[in-house]
């Protein structure tokens, strides 16, 4: 049922007010895969994600979805193909989990259209996938940070888009919930073929869970490829200005990065 959508940025520049944050960036998001955008703070990760959707108009260059310029696609049609979970959504006071997740169905409704059984099915599926079906009647304000984050993910799932962009979906989550969240996205990708693009801070989780890493530096694409190609001592140095050591992850076989700071070093400095 999933259609593979191709999301492409061509010489994309974007920013806020006078400041250009993303500079002339070319990027093709691999369809049907999980892509993580990584990079140092303020390198333009979130800005790139926002400008790949409709949230931030580009200064120059363009974003294409299946060859069509995104700003030419009617907003409702776009929001049935491309979902986005921003960093700080607001839960209206007193709203229940079921109601909030139901709002993910908004793009599938017209002005006067009524709620259909299909909508209920989509919301129920989203609640079950995120393991919050039993919280359906609880007010969102009363939930813990981890539960609340799952509610927002459920809202994005209820939207049923084939492309899902997430801005730091694991912030505010403890280690256990981080793994659970990323497992959920991996399930979604495998079962439905959903294309997932996310900004992640944790390089090791990014390497483990994604098929493709996009390393950004100073608003530009530094390098893009499989975790093995990207998570190297050289890239970490270039992107984060950090010395490190890379070893194979005994759990997943993907690379894992160990930072080398100035303290608590027992071996002799940086090495491959």
């Amino acid at each position: 049922m999933t259609v593979e959508h191709h999301l492409v940025a061509e010489a994309l520049s974007a920013g806020y007010h006078e400041r250009i944050v993303v500079k002339e960036l070319d990027l093709a998001i691999p369809a049907g895969r999980i892509t993580a955008i990584v990079g140092a703070n303020a390198c333009g990760k979130s800005t790139l994600l926002r400008s790949l959707s409709r949230l931030l108009p580009p200064r120059s260059g363009q974003r294409l979805l299946d060859g069509r310029a995104i700003h030419r696609i009617p907003s409702r049609e776009l929001s049935r193909m491309l979902g986005l979970l921003p960093q700080a959504p607001i839960a209206p006071e007193g709203i229940t989990v079921a109601e909030l997740v139901s709002r993910g169905r908004h793009p599938h409704h017209r002005l006067m259209s009524r709620w259909s059984p299909g909508d209920d099915a989509a919301v129920a599926e989203a609640l079950e996938a995120t393991h919050i079906a039993e919280l359906a009647d609880r007010p969102v304000d009363e939930l813990s940070g981890g539960q609340r984050q799952r509610v927002w993910i459920a809202l994005a799932l209820a939207q049923q888009t084939d492309l899902l962009l997430l801005d730091e979906p694991t912030t505010f989550l403890d280690v256990c919930h981080q793994a659970e969240m990323l497992d959920l996205l991996a399930d979604l990708n495998r079962k439905r073929g959903t294309t997932v693009v996310m900004v992640l801070h944790d390089l090791n989780l990014a390497a483990r869970y994604s098929d493709c890493l996009v390393a950004m530096r100073a608003g530009q694409l530094y390098k893009m490829g499989s975790p093995d190609e990207i998570l190297t001592v050289d890239t970490v140095r270039a992107v984060f200005g950090l010395e490190s050591r890379i070893i194979p992850d005994p759990v997943s076989g993907k690379p894992i990065m160990l930072p080398i700071g100035r303290h608590h070093i027992t071996t002799d400095g940086p090495a491959g």
Binding site: S53, S75, L85, I90
Partner: peptide, 11 residues
């Protein structure tokens, strides 16, 4: 009410 970003994402 859920914030501009999410509202735009919802069309």
């Amino acid at each position: 009410r859920m914030g501009d970003d999410l509202a735009v994402a919802l069309g």
